[in-house]
Amino acid sequence: MQSGTAADRASVNFPSIWAFILADCFSFAILFTIVMTERIGQSDLFDKAARHLDAQLGLVNTLILITGSWLVALAVVAARRGDGAGARKWLLAAIAVSSAFGAIKLYEYSAKIGAGFTPITNDFFTYYYMLTGLHFLHYIGGMAALIALVFNLDFSKVSETSVLRWIVSVGIFWHMVDLLWLFIYPMLYLLPLI
């Protein structure tokens, strides 16, 4: 069993993963700035185009990502207790729940393209596909990392710092996928409704 709080705390206090996450977050902040400044002067076009998006699907996807994040966080807690089987179970649950995000996003893309809304339709859809597409690539990377953890990590050695760090690092990356969507969702789907 994992014991002592020092090891627990050490597991999140390694700068490399935080530097990577922070750099990625600020890269998205630049993209947000580009989208919002491009919207100036054509807010009517952006808001009318945004109303073609399905805010309810966006809501479901937000709830899926939040739930996936919760399940991954539970896996980290189980791993810290030295419960490798429990950690693996929570990660599998996270993969199962979060896979629905990908399915819904692909459905949404196909529905939009089927309705004639492509990246060249107007500036709004250019940025919609760019932002959500980049976020989707992060989602795929996160899913691949979660799947790799579940099938390649030796969960019987979950008390070892190196194994625990893998789970914590992938978990932090997965939470970032959730974190970025928490801004993308209101920006593209919700605020144009007001």
Binding site: V12, I21, S69, W70, V72, A73, G171, I172, H175, M176, D178, L179, L182, F183, Y185, P186, L190, L191, I194
Partner: peptide, 20 residues
């Protein structure tokens, strides 16, 4: 608009501090 973004910011803060 501000209320919705304040909620988004609070959620992001909670994800950062509790989950991450």
């Amino acid at each position: 608009i501000w209320a919705a973004m304040l909620i988004a910011a609070l959620k992001a803060g909670v994800v950062l501090h509790v989950f991450m």
